[in-house]
């Protein structure tokens, strides 16, 4: 029995660590991606995913207790609010005329192909 509890604890730590690593990867994405939508993609998915991993890991470490329940409630709150916030941000950007960058994108040079049209001069999108 004690062995099972030990491994549950280890699993919790591994999940929390994975969540931490995922947040670092997400931050890298926010810094490296070319435009708002891809950056938002990196930020929101890793934000929600990392929070999920960390909160579940912590809940496993807390064991069958009130703390675990509170962590699960916090997770439910994050699952509701974090994607909604990302949606609101993307929606506001699109409504105010921000266009995603399209076309070939060289990962090695980090520069856009020069033939692509300028994204800022696109027509106002999303307006009814």
């Amino acid at each position: 029995m004690a062995d099972v509890l030990f491994w549950i604890d280890q699993l919790g730590m591994a999940l929390a660590l994975a969540g931490g690593i995922l947040s670092v990867i997400g931050s890298l994405g926010v810094l490296r991606f070319p435009d708002l939508y891809t950056r938002l993609h990196a930020a929101s998915i890793t934000d929600t995913g990392a929070a999920t991993l960390m909160l579940f890991g912590l809940a496993l470490m807390a064991g069958f207790s009130q703390e675990a329940l509170k962590l699960l409630i916090a997770w439910a709150f994050v699952m509701l609010t974090s994607p909604t916030a990302s949606h609101a941000l993307a929606n506001a950007a699109w409504s105010s005329g921000q266009k995603p960058k399209l076309g070939a994108f060289s990962l090695m040079s980090g520069k856009r192909e020069p033939a692509e049209a300028d994204t800022a001069s696109g027509e106002k999108g999303g307006a009814p």
């Binding site: 509701l80 909604t84 929606n91």
Partner: peptide, 15 residues
């Protein structure tokens, strides 16, 4: 009024 914010309104109503 905008239909774009149906997600926001649903989640806010819940939260």
């Amino acid at each position: 009024e905008s239909d774009h914010h149906v997600v926001l309104r649903s989640v806010a109503k819940l939260l």
